[in-house]
């Protein structure tokens, strides 16, 4: 770790102001950033901790039935309190281990957009809205590829709004070492159609499997996916699996998610 300063603002406004300074970086739960700092792979001058901002924490359901989760809410809290959206709570409860879940936050995960993270698939499959200090961004516009999002410099995820689906399920096939998603598929069925989002598999990060969505929208059963497959062209290939294997797993995990969603 290199030397850095740290500030702990108690409001979003103060955090935004602090992030305006040169080489300042937001610190959520630190589950990616702290190991990166320890390995001296980043050298921010100032860390702006978002952990003390009360207005960014908590889970509630709005009058419109949308589940609202503060950007600074930990996975552990989501797992325990997002009871209105069981598939999302289950996803949060299966991220990492208890230590990770007690520190890591939904806002941090979405802002980082790790291609193997779980949350991006939930946000994309749910058609969630990412609310920042300046604007609202639809999930479809938010994820711009591996570790890349629509967020501007210094922009903070204050809240994430999830329309609650009729049925949903997340299936994660774990990479054996890290237990991140080698392939994770989130399926969500809404009155106006089904959305399927895939994480872990693609070089472009989380993506929607639109062919599966179309098939499932007309017949929400795993048999609707028979004979369907995603292309392996843009899939990640590494020591844990070939592109073809990941493409295959997308099909398997999607079927399982549909079956489990019931």
């Amino acid at each position: 770790m290199y030397n850095f300063d740290i500030v702990r603002p108690s409001s979003v406004a103060d955090a935004v102001a602090a992030l305006g300074e040169e080489d300042a970086q937001a610190l959520g739960g630190g589950q990616t950033l702290i190991p990166t700092l320890k390995q001296r792979l980043a050298s921010p001058a100032k860390l702006v901790s978002l952990a003390g901002i009360a207005e960014m924490k908590g889970v509630c359901t709005g009058d419109d039935g949308v589940l609202c989760i503060g950007g600074g809410t930990t996975h552990g809290t989501v797992a325990a309190e997002a009871t209105a959206y069981p598939a999302l709570a289950a996803l949060a409860g299966n991220i990492g281990d208890p230590a990770v879940r007690n520190r890591g936050t939904i806002g941090g995960s979405l802002a980082n957009n790790d291609p193997s993270a779980c949350y991006p698939s939930a946000a994309l499959a749910s058609g969630a809205t990412i609310v920042t200090n300046t604007r609202e961004i639809a999930a479809d516009d938010f994820f711009e590829g591996m570790f890349t999002t629509a967020l501007n410099e210094g922009e903070i995820i204050c809240e994430v709004r999830f329309p609650v689906p009729e049925k949903a399920n997340y299936q994660k096939f774990e990479q054996p070492a890290s237990r991140f998603a080698l392939v994770g598929v989130f399926v969500a069925k809404y009155a106006d159609g089904v959305r399927v989002a895939v994480t872990g598999a693609s070089n472009d990060g989380v993506f929607r499997w639109t062919e599966a969505e179309a098939a499932l929208s007309s017949n929400f059963s795993s048999s609707a996916l028979d004979g369907m497959s995603v292309s392996s062209d843009d899939m990640i290939a590494d020591m844990h699996g070939s592109a073809a294997y990941r493409a295959h797993l997308v099909g398997v995990m999607t079927k399982r998610a549909v079956a489990a969603a019931g």
């Binding site: 054996p176 070492a177 890290s178 991140f180 020591m239 844990h240």
Partner: peptide
């Protein structure tokens, strides 16, 4: 070394 941490070396 590709398996240089517990992210890739499966214990």
């Amino acid at each position: 070394l590709l398996s240089a941490s517990y992210m890739d070396y499966a214990m």
